[in-house]
Design a protein around this nucleic acid. Sequence first.
DNA 1: GGCCAGGGTAGAA
DNA 2: TTCTACCATGGC
Length: 273
Amino acid sequence: MHTIRQGNKIIVQDNNFVVSKTLECGQIFRYFKNGEEDYFVCSTDKRCRVTGCDGKIEIITDDPDYFYNFFDLNFDYQRIFDKLSAFPELSEALDCGRGIRILRQDLYETIISFIISANNNILRIKGIIERLCSEYGKNCGDYFAFPTPSDFKETTVSDFRRLGCGFRDRYLYEACMKLRDENILESLRKAETEDARKILYSFKGIGPKVADCIILFGLGRFDTYPVDTWIFKACKTEELDTPSKVMRYFLDRYGEYAGYAQQLIFFKQRQTG
DNA sequence: GGCCAGGGTAGAA
DNA sequence: TTCTACCATGGC
């Protein structure tokens, strides 16, 4: 992998980076397709345009430092492919999902987004988040920022309901209150993964699956294995007949790369049913 | 018109 | 600790 920075542009030469797979694998909801391998991506109050394929990607943005970290461009995924190739059951998922990078998303934005994701589908999650941004986020010209905790200061439970959040309305209201205390985010960043799970379980609306998504996408840790309906369908056996058994088994099997293996399986399962 | 979606909570057993 | 009913909403 090789990256070149030129002003407001980052050029990435990497055969293990496919823009469409990275954005459409369910880890992020604020992306907008312009055309083939051509997207706008929003995170917090920042935005970039990502284009390109065949090993050459261009990222155009006013904040190259932010998106260099966001796309985790110091990290070479070849290492993970080599490690996971040792597991024969992953060979198809590795072929299918090659090119997915795990984005280093903003922790607070990830917490809110994945509370919304519970028992929901990706299309609707995107719609809810866009309505939250346009109603409460800062106007940045031709897009809206993700609302900060203080932007939500006067948002009521019924406001969340009105914007289509459903039964998650009170979870979001309470989470916004808690997250106005910056110390929680710092505690999460400093905590060991198992302790981070416990902190996240103290939020109403966050259980095992959502917590592991937040730790994977918001803290960038791969010692996670979020089990949603797709993963459960793909992984269940006679012995592994509950989500918690699936989670424990594959956390142990794939270890420090479990989160990435999970993402490959999720992607393949959604492609092929 | 039921079924399903990046599930979780509360209460019961 | 594990089982069950229930929770809003929109696309299919």
